[in-house]
């Protein structure tokens, strides 16, 4: 066979991102998706990917909670800016807004949180829980999805991020 050389893009090839550690610290829909979409995107690009769930971010891996996350309608000026805060705080308002947002996301082929976790781990991404937050919320391993690899300390977390061209993203 003859030569089959293609010229590939080499910009910054020596310093491609090799590893990311994404810290998911919040449990609102928009923050969890920000963390998981970046994580999945990294996995899709062949980047070694770790997600560390801490504090309310643990909701994203807690059975029974992960697919029921809400987008806050109060204290969130970007969300429906023309709706007065007192109205946005009425019972059921936030649930309705969250359901509507999830429908819009589904249209864009953005899967529910449970499926995002499956996709990330199917591609080799790894999920870690924060020991201190788990203790604080009095949770156990059984409370979390099967995809969770382990529950670790902050020290262990930084250990995961060690190495060249490794980045930490806090959400």
């Amino acid at each position: 066979m003859e030569t089959t050389t293609l010229t590939k893009k080499t910009t910054a090839a020596d310093h491609k991102v090799k590893k990311v550690l994404i810290i998911c610290s919040k449990g609102s829909l928009q923050d969890v998706y920000a963390a998981l979409i970046m994580a999945n995107g990294a996995v899709m690009d062949g980047i070694e990917t770790h997600v560390f769930f801490t504090f309310f971010g643990l909701d994203a891996i807690t059975k029974g909670k992960l697919d029921k996350l809400h987008v806050p309608t109060v204290g969130n000026p970007s969300m429906m800016p023309h709706v007065p805060t007192v109205v946005a705080g009425l019972p059921g308002f936030e649930s309705l807004a969250s359901t509507m947002m999830k429908k819009e996301m589904e249209k864009l082929d953005i899967p529910p949180v449970s499926e995002m976790l499956e996709m990330i781990t199917a591609g080799g991404g790894r999920l870690h829980g924060c020991q201190l937050a788990v203790d604080m919320f009095k949770l156990n391993r059984e409370d979390f999805v099967d995809e969770l690899e382990d529950i670790i300390t902050v020290g262990d977390m930084f250990g995961l991020a060690a190495g060249e061209d490794s980045h930490i993203i806090f959400v």
């Binding site: 066979m1 003859e2 089959t4 050389t5 293609l6 010229t7 590939k8 893009k9």
Partner: peptide, 15 residues
């Protein structure tokens, strides 16, 4: 242009 499998084919800068 790139030579792939013996033929000349047009590709973009990412191949």
């Amino acid at each position: 242009e790139a030579t792939i499998a013996g033929t000349t084919i047009d590709v973009n800068d990412e191949g």
